[in-house]
Design a protein around this nucleic acid. Structure first.
Length: 830
RNA sequence: GCCCGAGUGGUGGAACUGGUAGACGCGCGGGACUCAAAAUCCCGUCCCAGCAAUGGGGUGAGAGUUCGAUUCUCUCCUCGGGCACCA
């Protein structure tokens, strides 16, 4: 790389700098002086600047990581210049399927691979110039860390929030483990796109997140988070309001169904039970037993997910029995079909084929009655007969809307749907056949993993005492180093093959007992890591209460929306539980969260298979970290991401070189400052501060460029005035920390520029004394006026009409109207 | 299918609560410096007509509201993301 040559610093024509030398110099200098470390105990204005810790992959740091971290780092550095004591920690999310699958692939123990990856990551992160407090680093695989992950589990267990349930789970035959629903994509394993996931019943540990659904949803409204992230969480929680209605069989069995449209109950012509529904057997007649049994067995063999993939051909069987529609009193046939899911609502539905697409499809296929009970509007009368015909347009079946009017609904005919919901619910409630009900989509969080590479769940099973938690003093339950960490078909963790490990005395009675051999989900590791950072130096507590109170909740959290749902939801949940247990003073961990955008390459997501992965190391080696940082921030709006191309990077470098030249020509303050430059400076200070505040880094950088451009002519004449240059260097420091530090030193200061103060903004100095007012005729620009701010409307109009360009369009016409926007424009309408 | 977000020059992208569309870069064209090249510096660069002054068109498509719309409303098209048989 010989594109640029270092010029001797005294040389007046110096145009280029040597990033490698500059960056190496400051990297070690900062480490020596502990420039990046905040005094965690003594800090007076604590600001907790968090970024999402990476998974230390074998491939090393990805550009996406760099993009994310740099954006957060700029924010942190900016806050520091504003006088905050900024704590910017980082760590490694090193447990989990990612690491384990890779270890299996290369057939090396993850315990060997991970430390090496971390070493590499640490180097790369340091090279990037992040203001990280390295003495608070965290690694989830460190027993000193996962000891406390296990402690968190125990806290939840004690509080009754960790419960063991037999549950159908998604089983990936390739991973040989249970997958969370979110790890399944369209019926296939997220990590093995060719492998279908199927259903399997296992006894698993669940966290009771559903109990917190309402609160998780409610709190969202109060959080300063990216709108997109809040929307995703809202949808994930999936609150819906409706009613539980009772359909009773002649033999007196009450079958509850959940519906969001109780107003359509008069159109419920049949019932459907999920194949797993406990009443299926009881409801089935002797004649139908064989067929129903067969259907249910088939359903249970399908995976949990592909059953839910839309647009599937409806299937189902009739049980042979009936239940009474609570509204009409008519007998509704009871069917079993797998389009009804056991885990949502009551596992049974009332089918309203006239007003539900799925029910309609099913009824069509099996010849069930379709009865219209909602008419599109009061004006159009109910369709004749008992429905079933498919009309055109608005009235076509299945018709669903809240704007319709009830028909074929007895005394409720003519009522609007919304009103109908209330009236019918109340009516059925009085009859003891229904009640209002709120339903969520959120499921409990299964944390069990039949895997090796995770923290063992700290539980012991004793024949006498049952399920016994490991005593806190006995934590951590160490993950043993075993060679056969490969999972198998058995459905149990590889740890279950190690009797010497799992055979332990019961913590309660001392008799021979057996450890839980499953490990916990990686998301548990990451659901509390932000609590650990300030307290890493404490060996005897997960988090120190004093420090936690001082530093948390997190002041700013920046990360990708790929974690919008799981990581952020689980962290909120754990925080809430710990709060309720009296262990935390706050119940929301992240005051402010911003989701950054994604960096794509040639319009497509970077991926190995596409071969469009950008390796940051190469760019940093060629251009230096500062240029690379700024380039990433410049290529698009940070919150939206952008397309990575090599072409533009030279522009950033040229900009830095120009600032370098300005610095080389700095002259001490003194004498009159150019009014125009001072004005531009103050405008820039305001603009850059606002932009950084809103994470609009691309426009902040362009404002800095503009300002440096105005400095250039001045430089040519008599050197750069220090008073005009220094604020530029400070404003540049968050973006190009090494470069700014070097310029700071070269312009006669001692380090560190990062301890400088953000330049103060003077509104008076930023104000222009002459401004341009646009003159329009009928909305088209026909001229401009140069005026002093605060011109009156009359004056403005008079002067506008005097302009030649305006006269031409106004003469011979009557002025109908004039519009004046103070100090902006005059519009003359003729 | 449903819910978000986005479509602006050759190109990445700017444009505050409706008020000069194209800031700042990249690229390209021209010039200076040089024996020459690179680097650097200066000028130009939305499209059409014109020597120019100037005029006309222009923010995915079409309508609407307004003195004035990239910005607000409606319909449609395309792309990105999320959810998806959730009753």
């Amino acid at each position: 790389m010989l594109d640029y040559v270092t010029m001797p610093e005294q040389e007046p024509g110096a145009v280029s700098y040597d990033p490698e030398a500059v960056e190496a110099k400051w990297c070690s200098s900062w480490e020596e002086r502990r420039t990046n470390s905040v005094d965690i105990e003594a800090a007076e204005r604590p600001y907790y600047n968090l970024m999402m810790y990476p998974y230390p992959s074998a491939e090393g740091l990805h550009v996406g990581n760099v993009f994310a971290f740099v954006g957060s780092d700029i924010h942190g550095r900016f806050r520091r210049l504003q006088g905050w004591d900024v704590f910017e920690p980082i760590g490694f999310d090193a447990f989990g399927i990612h690491s384990e699958n890779y270890a299996l692939k290369v057939n090396t123990h993850p315990g060997k691979l991970i430390p090496a990856n971390i070493v590499r990551f640490r180097e790369q992160l340091k090279r990037t110039g992040l203001m990280v407090n390295w003495d608070h680093e965290v690694s989830t695989t460190d027993p000193d860390y996962y000891r406390w992950t296990q402690w968190v589990f125990l806290k939840l267990f004690e509080a009754g929030h960790a419960v063991k349930k037999e549950a159908p789970v998604n089983w990936c035959p390739e991973c040989k483990t249970v997958l969370a629903n979110e790890q399944v994509e369209d019926g296939y394993c997220e990590r093995h796109p060719g492998t279908r996931v199927h259903q399997r019943y296992l006894s698993q540990w669940f966290f009771t997140i559903t109990q917190f659904a309402e609160r998780l949803l409610e709190n969202l409204k109060t959080l300063d988070w990216s709108e997109s992230t809040r929307t995703m969480q809202t949808n994930w929680i999936g609150r819906s309001e409706g009613a539980e209605l009772i359909f009773e069989t002649p033999s007196g069995v009450r079958i509850p169904v959940y519906t969001t449209r109780p107003d359509t109950v008069f159109g419920a012509t049949y019932l459907v039970l999920a194949p797993e529904h406990p009443l299926v057997d009881e409801m089935t007649t002797f004649e139908q037993r064989a067929e129903v049994g067969k259907y249910c067995r088939q359903a249970s063999q399908k995976d949990l997910v592909s059953r839910k993939v839309g647009d599937r051909e409806k299937t189902g069987v009739f049980t042979g029995t009936y239940a009474r529609n609570p509204a009409t009193g008519e007998a509704a046939p009871i069917w079993v079909a797998d389009y009804v899911l056991m885990e949502y609502g009551t596992g049974a539905i009332m089918a309203v084929p006239a007003h539900d697409e799925r029910d309609y499809e099913f009824a069509q296929k099996f010849g069930l009655e379709i009865r219209r009970v909602v008419s599109p509007s009061a004006a159009s009368p109910p369709h004749p007969g008992e429905g079933g015909e498919v009309g055109e347009g608005e009235g076509a079946l299945p018709y669903i809307s809240w704007d319709g009017v009830l028909v074929n609904s007895g005394e409720f005919d003519g009522m609007g749907c919304l009103e109908g919901v209330k009236a019918i619910t109340a009516w059925l409630e009085e009859a003891g056949l229904g009640e209002k009900r709120v339903q969520f989509r959120l499921h409990d969080w299964c944390i069990s993993r039949q895997r090796y590479w995770g923290p063992p769940i700290p539980i012991v099973y004793c024949e006498e005492c049952g399920t016994v938690p490991v005593a806190e003093k006995d934590l951590p339950v160490l993950l043993p180093e075993i060679d056969d960490f490969r999972p198998d078909e058995s459905g149990v963790s590889p740890l279950a093959r190690h009797e010497e490990w799992y055979r332990v005395p019961c913590p309660k009675c001392g008799r021979q007992a057996r450890r839980e051999t499953d490990v916990s989900d990686t998301f548990l590791d990451s659901s509390w890591y932000f609590l650990r950072y300030p307290s890493t130096h404490f060996a005897d507590r997960a988090f120190d209460s004093g420090l936690t109170e001082k530093w948390l909740p997190v002041s700013s959290y920046i990360g990708g929306n790929e974690h919008a749902v799981l990581h952020l939801m689980y962290s909120r949940y754990i925080t809430m539980v710990l709060h309720d247990l009296g262990l935390l003073r706050f119940d929301e961990p992240f005051t402010r969260f911003r989701a950054h955008g994604t960096i794509v390459k040639d319009g497509a997501k970077m991926s190995k298979s596409r071969g469009n992965v950008v390796v940051p190391d190469d760019y940093i080696a060629k251009w230096g970290a500062d240029t690379f940082r700024m380039y990433l921030m410049f290529l698009g709006p940070y919150l939206e991401g952008g397309d990575f191309r090599d072409e533009g990077i030279a522009g950033i470098r040229r900009f830095l070189d120009r600032v370098w030249t300005l610095t080389a020509r700095v002259v001490p303050t003194g004498g009159e400052l150019d009014r125009g430059s001072v004005r531009k400076l103050h405008q820039t200070i305001e603009k850059v501060a606002d932009d950084i505040e809103g994470l609009h880094y691309n426009t902040a950088i362009s404002a800095l460029m503009e300002y440096s451009n105005t400095l250039r002519p001045a430089t040519a004449a008599s050197g750069t005035n220090a008073e005009l240059l220094e604020p530029l260097i400070i404003m540049l420091a968050p973006f190009a920390p090494h470069f700014a530090e070097e310029c700071w030193e070269r312009s006669g200061h001692s380090p560190s520029v990062h301890d400088a103060k953000w330049p103060s903004f003077d509104e008076e100095l930023a104000r222009a004394d002459q401004i341009e007012v646009v003159v329009q005729v009928n909305g088209r620009v026909r001229g401009r006026l140069l005026v002093t701010p605060g011109l009156s409307q009359d004056e403005a109009v008079t002067r506008a009409l005097a302009q030649d360009g305006v006269k031409r369009f106004v003469t011979d016409k009557a002025v109908r109207k004039t519009i004046y926007v103070q100090d902006r424009l005059v519009n003359i309408v003729v």
